[in-house]
Simulated assay, not measured.
Amino acid sequence: MASPLARGAESTDTGASRVVVPAGLRIPPAESMAPVWEEEIATAAPRPAFWLLGAHGGACVSSLARTWAPSGDSRRGWPAADRYRNVVIVARTHRAGLQSAHELLLQATAGLSGDCTLLGLLTVPDADGSLPATLRRQLEIVESAAPRVWRLPYLAHYRSLTYEQMPVWSPTDPPPPPKSKLRRTDPTAYPDPALAEVGAEIFDAARLAAARQAP
């Protein structure tokens, strides 16, 4: 299963069913793929509208799941048994993070992610400043495998906040104050506008996906 597929479609066992993999698509090795959860992982209501799947440890999923009220941490796996199965892969922009994200994107493209809908890829800077040229090229290649991409900026002020201090964004929240006033407010009072904007875009994408999935 770790070898590239050269010609003709092939099928892969996934427990109860067999999945036909498109011809020519490279299937990641088993150790690079995320597990497909066979039991529901949502533990409380309301159920997450979309899930954040960390491509690797330290991808910032816990902080983002705290910040975006409609989201949930998928525990590094595909939430195939949950009511809503819309997934965003999250990765840092270092080489290992992008490589891991690419493997998960290939896993989803091959149909090996259960009954989940991949909304796209979200990247989180691993350091301030521009990416080196080699990483920029790698990022572009990885993003080309995603149905949609979101890039968060480097948010230095979040380094000084504890997990409990991080402000929460909800789709029903009013718009944040103008940036000039936001700089003078308590950083725990409002999410950074970039986080609110990306959260709103992902939530809208999840709503559209849920509407298409409805019987």
Results as ranks from 00 to 15, higher is better:
Leu121Gln: 03
Leu112Asp: 00
Val124Asp: 00
Cys60Glu: 10
Val90Ala: 08
Gln138Met: 13
Ala206Gln: 06
Arg148Glu: 12
Val168Asn: 04
Leu122Phe: 10
Tyr84Thr: 06
Thr172Asn: 13
Tyr163Trp: 06
Leu155Gly: 04
Pro175Lys: 14
Thr109Leu: 14
Pro171Lys: 04
Val198Ser: 01
Arg85Ser: 02
Pro178Met: 11
Leu106Lys: 09
Ala55Asp: 12
Ser144Tyr: 04
Ser100Val: 01
Gly54His: 03
Asp173Gly: 05
Ser74Met: 05
Asp128Pro: 05
Asp13Ile: 04
Ser71Met: 11
Ser32His: 15
Lys179Asp: 15
Tyr84Ile: 08
Gly120Trp: 08
Ser100Phe: 10
Trp169Tyr: 07
Pro22Ile: 03
Trp37Lys: 12
Ala196Ser: 15
Pro48Ala: 13
Gly15Arg: 13
Leu208Asp: 10
Ala211Met: 15
Pro177Arg: 07
Pro70Tyr: 05
Ala209Cys: 11
Leu208Thr: 13
Thr162Val: 03
Ala80Leu: 03
Ser17Lys: 14
His56Leu: 14
Ile202Arg: 06
Ala59Gly: 13
Pro35Tyr: 10
Thr185Gly: 01
Ala156Pro: 02
Glu197Phe: 02
Arg148Tyr: 07
Asp126Lys: 00
Ala45Phe: 12
Glu38Gln: 14
Ala49Ile: 00
Val19Glu: 00
Pro175Val: 07
Ala2Arg: 15
Val19Leu: 03
Glu140Ser: 12
Glu38Tyr: 13
Thr14Glu: 12
Val19His: 06
Leu106Arg: 13
Val21Asn: 01
Pro215Tyr: 05
Thr188Ile: 12
Leu195Ile: 08
Arg95Tyr: 03
Leu195Cys: 07
Val124Gln: 03
Ala23Asp: 02
Leu119Val: 10
Pro147Phe: 12
Glu38Met: 11
Asp173Tyr: 07
Ala200Asn: 10
Ser113Val: 02
Tyr190Glu: 09
Glu40Gly: 13
Leu106Ala: 07
